[in-house]
């Protein structure tokens, strides 16, 4: 019996984040019942999908005791480049005057490839020069944003429906973006728990010296972490441009890395490395979604929304650190 109650306690403690999410949803729902409608839940999740996918990327970086600040800028660069290849042929303000849009699948593959290459570059810089990830990715952030602005000085829009499919289309009542989001959740959870790569990242985050002694190729794993992170950013960019129908060099993805880091953090990913659960990060994303969506519906002022967000981010980390300290 005693063991049983301990199990329950452990389960609740491990999943306290979901409890917080449910309480939040109910609280907003009681005040504004329309919040709970299926339509609004679809709106909520599709609104968070892009940042959510980025969070699934950055959680690997945080788990390995790193960070990725380039996400939003990588997204901007991928967004403007892919969008420029996907504009309708008859649009007067085309980026490539008089050209034709490339097939969507090709454009998307180009975008993802750009993401992978960018991630490999700064992943290699972090792994082999040993400079802090914070610095390497801060540099990357500036360079990618500038690259996006150099590529185009104005928004690129009128994109083909086939390019916008992932971000914009619906299959029946379900937006494709939501399907992509949950698919990416499943893939990252699988990567994290079921593959050697995931286990290696856990090991590096826990103690990189021990990981090295245990025969893990720390450098290669680190590069792969940032490749994955950047891949998620590129996919996010394609969804975002699909959803909004426009890629804006100066503002697309601006500060998205911070939202992604916040979601991963609220979801219990430890910045001291070695602790991360994909389900927790999913809950973290949804909590931020409830705040973004719900507080608008409750007619709460924008500044207040950000104050609540800030409190939740800090509060959740304090809770987590105490919990993890107890466990040790």
């Amino acid at each position: 019996m005693g063991g049983n109650s301990k199990d329950i306690k452990g389960f609740v403690s491990r999943n306290s984040i979901w409890l917080i999410l449910i309480i939040l949803i109910l609280a907003v729902g009681v005040i504004q019942p329309k919040f709970l409608s299926v339509g609004n839940m679809v709106t909520l999740i599709s609104g968070e999908a892009v940042r959510g996918i980025m969070a699934f990327g950055v959680m690997f970086a945080i788990l390995s005791k790193g960070i990725d600040l380039t996400i939003g800028s990588t997204a901007a660069l991928v967004a403007v480049i892919t969008a420029s290849f996907a504009q309708e042929a008859d649009y007067a303000n085309r980026y490539f005057e008089g050209g034709k849009p490339l097939p969507a699948i090709l454009v998307i593959l180009i975008g993802l490839a750009i993401g992978v290459v960018i991630g490999a570059i700064y992943g290699a810089i972090i792994a082999y020069t040993k400079i802090p990830a914070f610095i390497a990715t801060l540099g990357g952030q500036l360079i990618c944003r500038a690259g996006a602005k150099m590529y185009s000085d104005s928004p690129i829009s009128k994109l083909t429906e086939s390019y916008r499919f992932l971000g914009h289309a619906k299959i029946g009542p379900v937006p494709v973006i939501i399907i992509v989001f949950f698919l990416m959740f499943a893939i990252s959870a699988f990567l994290l728990t079921q593959t050697r790569f995931g286990k290696n990242v856990f090991a590096i985050g826990g103690n990189d010296q021990a990981a090295r002694v245990a025969g893990i190729n720390v450098e290669r794993t680190t590069v792969l972490v940032y490749v994955w992170c950047s891949f998620c950013a590129a996919l996010g960019a394609i969804l975002l441009t699909g959803k909004t129908g426009s890629a804006t060099p100066a503002s697309t993805g601006l500060n998205y890395e911070l939202d992604a880091i916040a979601a991963a953090t609220v979801g219990g990913t430890s910045h001291t490395g070695g602790i991360c659960r994909a389900s927790g990060v999913l809950a973290g994303i949804l909590i931020l979604g409830v705040i973004n969506n719900g507080l608008v519906m409750l007619k709460v002022d924008d500044n207040m929304t950000n104050i609540v967000k800030g409190l939740i981010i800090v509060g959740s980390v304090i809770l987590d650190m105490r919990k993890n300290a107890k466990r040790v």
Binding site: S37, N40, T43, L44, N293, V296, M297
Partner: peptide
């Protein structure tokens, strides 16, 4: 921001 308001 406007999405949650449109149908509610």
């Amino acid at each position: 921001m406007i999405a949650p308001l449109l149908t509610t």
